[in-house]
């Protein structure tokens, strides 16, 4: 669906995007994670055709952004960081205007607009002026605008930034329930990506530092740490554990015992539980630690 290759963007002396390459397959929802100033907005603007890169290529559904910009733009629904709405227009007039700009045929116009309004729950404000709308509603108008023409690729730049918690939940649900689109969503909030996306890329200073499926990211190296709850824990048991060749480290923390294993395979976890049961220490609980993406993120972007 989307292929980005060796993308570079320099603003004068600021190298905002460095040799960025990634792919987005059809139907995937890719989270584009990074702290502020990482180059997310810049990359998205380039993909959407609002900005030319210093070098590199972007293709959407097989069309090159720079060779056939019009074809590519028809494939993309873009919600910029700040929703591009006209204060002095009514919601329905605004959506009509954008539909016309997108070249949607007259016969489909009202159907497209109604659909976009329905998907973003804007019925109640369709006849209100945008300047009187709350931030959350404006964001939804921005999203409705991106959905017009049912583009296969959605590019959403920090869609929940600056909203209150209730609005954040609503927008996230909205995005999760969109069907039939591939999505590139940027965020500096991990839980958001964890919640909405199927894959994630973490970028920092314009470079990719990690790329993986969400599930793999969560389990990656994380589960090499195991927490145990035992009926009794003595120095002897500790020594026995440390004598096992797959245990690197063992320590009591609060009322739990934290064990670092050499890797996170299931076989090892089974080995460990067999050993504990056989040694009769009274195994109450054995749980691999979910080293949340949060921790990875903080660790990586420090």
């Amino acid at each position: 669906m989307l292929k980005v290759k060796n993308l570079n963007k320099k603003y004068g002396s600021v190298h905002a995007v460095k040799n960025l390459s990634f792919k987005l397959e059809k139907g995937e929802r890719l989270g584009f994670l990074g702290p502020n100033g990482a180059g997310k907005t810049t990359t998205m603007q380039i993909i959407a055709g609002a900005l030319a890169p210093s070098s590199g290529t972007v293709s959407v559904a097989g069309h090159d952004v720079f060779e056939s910009p019009k074809k590519v733009k028809k494939q993309i629904g873009y919600l910029p960081e700040i929703p591009p709405v006209y204060e002095d227009m009514k919601v329905c007039d605004y959506l009509k205007y954008v539909s016309q700009l997108k070249g949607i045929l007259k016969v489909n116009l009202s159907k497209e607009i109604d659909e976009a309004i329905a998907k973003t729950n804007l019925e109640s404000v369709a006849n209100r002026y945008i300047q009187h709308l709350s931030k959350g509603f404006r964001q939804r108008v921005g999203l409705a605008q991106a959905l017009l023409g049912n583009p296969p690729l959605l590019i959403l730049d920090e869609p929940t930034v600056g909203l209150d918690p209730q609005q954040i939940i609503e927008i996230r649900e909205l995005i999760k329930n969109l069907e039939g689109h591939s999505v590139l969503l940027s965020s500096h909030i991990l839980s958001e990506v964890q919640n909405i996306c199927t894959k994630a890329i973490i970028i920092k200073n314009g470079q990719i530092i990690l790329e993986d499926n969400i599930q793999d990211l969560i389990h990656n190296e994380s589960s090499s740490i195991v927490h145990l709850k035992l009926n009794s824990f003595t120095k002897e048991i500790e020594n026995n554990l440390l004598n096992l060749n797959y245990v690197k480290h063992c320590a009591q923390k609060n009322n739990k015992i934290e064990i670092h294993l050499t890797n996170s395979s299931d076989e090892l976890l089974i080995e460990l539980s067999k050993f504990l049961i056989n040694s009769g220490v009274g195994l109450i609980e054995q749980s691999p630690q979910d080293l949340k993406l949060e921790n990875i993120f903080i660790e990586l972007t420090k």
Binding site: Q45, A48, G49, A50, P69, K70, K71, K73, K74, I76, Y78, P80, E81, I82, P84, V85, Y86, E87, V98, L101, K102, G103, Q145
Partner: peptide, 13 residues
């Protein structure tokens, strides 16, 4: 100023 410029630049026009 209103950041609607982004819209004009990204529609097929």
């Amino acid at each position: 100023k209103q950041k609607t410029y982004n819209l004009l630049l990204t529609v097929p026009i």
